[in-house]
């Protein structure tokens, strides 16, 4: 689509200064969408749900699955409440997301290995605490980067 004319606007191109100003404004709006404010309760609840899903593995078979399922439903509900509150559905950029995701998967995999290979269940407790800490720290850092207080 080239040089479309919308709403009767004349097909005039901006000067370099005008183009630079338009780019600055667009970058600022884009950044605002990429760094949405997150309520203080969001990451602690998310941390609780993730830790709960891991701790549910300590329960006997049908209950461990039910616990994980309940935690997954909880994460979905939390995300929905958040999206409704801010009015924007947006994903973190890969750069923002990979550090906590890699750590969470590492602790999850570690707990699974300790359980399956060594038949030790303490890994789930340690993993749950570690993942809760990862999410709370990540949440605090994210909120600080968006200029929010505690």
């Amino acid at each position: 689509m080239e040089n479309s004319n919308g709403a009767g606007a004349p097909d005039t191109r901006p000067t370099p200064e005008e183009a630079a100003a338009a780019l600055r404004q667009a970058d600022s709006d884009r950044t605002a969408m990429e760094r949405l404010p997150v309520p203080g309760w969001y990451y602690p609840i998310l941390a609780g749900l993730i830790a709960g899903a891991m701790l549910a593995q300590l329960l006997p078979s049908p209950f461990s699955f039910a616990g994980s399922l309940a935690a997954a439903v909880g994460v979905g509900a939390l995300a929905r409440v958040y999206v409704d509150k801010v009015g924007v559905l947006s994903w973190l950029t890969p750069r923002q997301m990979w550090p906590p995701v890699v750590l969470i998967l590492l602790f999850l995999f570690g707990a699974l290995v300790v359980d399956q290979v060594y038949d030790q269940q303490w890994g789930w407790v340690v993993g749950a605490a570690a993942n809760a800490a990862v999410l709370i720290v990540f949440g605090a850092l994210y909120r600080r980067s968006t200029g929010e207080r505690t």
Binding site: M1, E2, N3, S4, N5, G6, A7, A9, P10, D11, R13, P14, A22, Q25, A26, D27, D29, R30, T31, A32, M33, E34, G87, V88, L89, S90, W91
Partner: peptide, 25 residues
Amino acid sequence: NGFDQTIHAPNRLRICAMLDAATEA
């Protein structure tokens, strides 16, 4: 050549910038 008058109107450029950064707003 990709210059687009429909998008370039100041508020429309801003709307597009925001929507491009989000799945839905």
